[in-house]
Design a protein around this nucleic acid. Structure first.
Lengths: 215, 215
DNA sequence: GTCAATATTGTTGTATACAAGATGTTGGAG
DNA sequence: CTCCAACATCTTGTATACAACAATATTGAC
């Protein structure tokens, strides 16, 4: 690791937290991090402040900053919020997407299908994200799109889990088709409803998984 | 001003930005701020990183951080997003609020009405915020509620403008009643729709105001 | 007088120094 | 052996020092 600038350190730390490199409640030792990144404590502290302000870590004065991995409850809340954000994007996108946007959405959907046929999971994840991101942009509301992107990013690691369920991929693709139809028809309510369901089910699958693990 | 701790400085700076203390594009001079707060540059810089990461300022390497006040377009986007967030809260709250929650919501609504009768604008603003916050909490989703609170906070200064329109207060109270009804009935769709409209109109009023100013 | 090259000043970004609170340890009293 | 207090150590939070870069002013050539 050969990173120097403080804001890049914040980004790298963020990715490390997302990828589960740190345990929940673990203290982020400024000195250790400074050594790891080959910098002094100053840029590390600036990066830590960013983590804290984004809610990914908690700061206890004079004690240090402790990373806060979302627990099951918070994760379900985040999935629920994601569902509502996507529904909002879909509602707006239904009346705002151009034919060109719709074409590229259909395209992304085809590439999802292709990836499934090739059983290329990684590519499916990537293309699926693209599909949704096109809808975010289609809402023609940069602020809302950024909110959606941020949460999508935070949930990435957990979203993968749902596809372990048998038949989920096929069902997911059917839902994509319905979403595409609703958006093409300009049916705002239907687009919102379908997207909400499509994303909410991920949260539910996740919930199921947690439940089975705790048994 | 006699503030010492860095995270409090971030908060104070945030409030100063919200209250329009800084012009759009203005550079936040680390030395000047350090003098104003009677601290060294170190805690100031940590606070600035937080501002930047929240999107309230932009950092250009080796040049400084520049505050970024939302322009008309971004503000309209934020109002639209707020409408969708409130709709989401309402949708969930409709099936999750307890009788006790509903009672305190009715209570807050009464206090809004009272404030209007007393023509106490400041109290109306406060009680109106409370009314909406009870709905956020009613969604029983801490993550979503926090998102809503954050945006409510960022839009506070601009929300006041809408009430300058003739008859808006009365109409607003009628909408509150409808919202209360929908939530009491547990009608999720209606609650969402009514809340969306209630908040969206604020954005539209704001839009009107901008339009008239530019003429 | 204008422009280019250079010197000067100012600001950011990082490292280090130091003060103050938190943690851990040792030694003794009961 | 347990509990408590004094001391030593570690960590955070802030100030200061310094290096690198940006902006500006100055000088000199034409």
């Amino acid at each position: 690791m050969e990173i120097r600038r403080a804001d890049q350190i914040a980004n790298t730390l963020e990715q490390l937290v997302f990828s589960g490199e740190f345990q929940d409640g673990e203290r982020l030792d400024e000195l250790k991090l400074a050594e790891q990144f080959h910098v002094s404590r100053t840029p590390i502290r600036e990066a830590l402040q960013v983590l804290v302000s984004s809610g990914m870590a908690e700061q206890i004065p004079r004690r240090g900053v402790f990373i806060r991995q979302p627990g099951p409850v918070e994760l379900i809340e985040m999935f629920e919020t994601m569902a509502e954000l996507e529904a909002a994007c879909g509602r707006l996108a239904a009346t705002r997407m151009s034919d060109k946007d719709l074409a590229s959405l259909a395209n992304a959907n085809d590439r999802c299908q292709q990836a499934i046929q090739d059983t290329d999971h990684d590519r499916y994840y990537a293309e699926n994200e693209t599909f949704h991101q096109i809808i975010y942009r289609g809402a023609a509301n940069t602020f809302l799109a950024n909110q959606a992107l941020q949460l999508q990013n935070r949930l990435r690691a957990y979203r993968r889990i749902q596809l372990r369920f048998r038949g989920r991929m096929k069902q997911s693709m059917e839902e994509h088709s319905q979403i595409l139809c609703a958006l093409s028809d300009g049916d705002a309510d239907l687009a919102a409803q379908t997207l909400r369901g499509h994303v909410a089910v991920q949260g539910e699958k996740f919930h199921q998984l947690i439940a089975t693990l705790n048994r």
